[in-house]
């Protein structure tokens, strides 16, 4: 469950930033109560990048080696719109079930 939803969350976070470092993504997730380790993010980011939803740029940092900063692409944005749409539908469907379980 988490993995699929996590992709949605990660894409959403990246979409709201111009450019973002993976550690920052994790912090943002953490701040809304979604706890993941950074190790979860790297393969996911790579996959999303390979699917053309993300790009990255190298940027120098004070801490040491150059960092990859991720950015959403137009494709990524339209996929995200779809994902968000189906997520809303999914949630509202499930909610309906919570409210009124089948009477018969």
């Amino acid at each position: 469950m988490r993995k699929g939803v996590l992709e949605l969350c990660v894409l959403s976070i990246i979409a709201t930033h111009d450019e973002i470092y993976p550690a920052t993504i994790r912090e943002q997730l953490d701040s809304v109560g979604i706890e993941v380790v950074e190790g979860t993010l790297y393969p996911m980011l790579m996959r999303l990048k390979n699917m053309g939803y993300l790009t990255y740029t190298w940027q120098d940092s004070n801490a040491g080696a150059a960092r990859k900063y991720y950015k959403i692409t137009d494709t990524g944005r339209s996929v995200l719109d779809e994902l968000q749409q189906s997520w809303r539908e999914f949630v509202s469907s499930v909610d309906k079930l919570f409210v009124s379980a089948p009477a018969d």
Partner: peptide, 24 residues
């Protein structure tokens, strides 16, 4: 990750980040 697609890239990213974390 050895059987994952993009193994090298993932490992490089993770190692770079680990280096950074240890550095900090």
């Amino acid at each position: 990750f050895k059987t994952s697609e993009g193994y090298e890239e993932i490992m490089n990213d993770i190692e770079a980040r680990l280096g950074e974390l240890i550095q900090e």
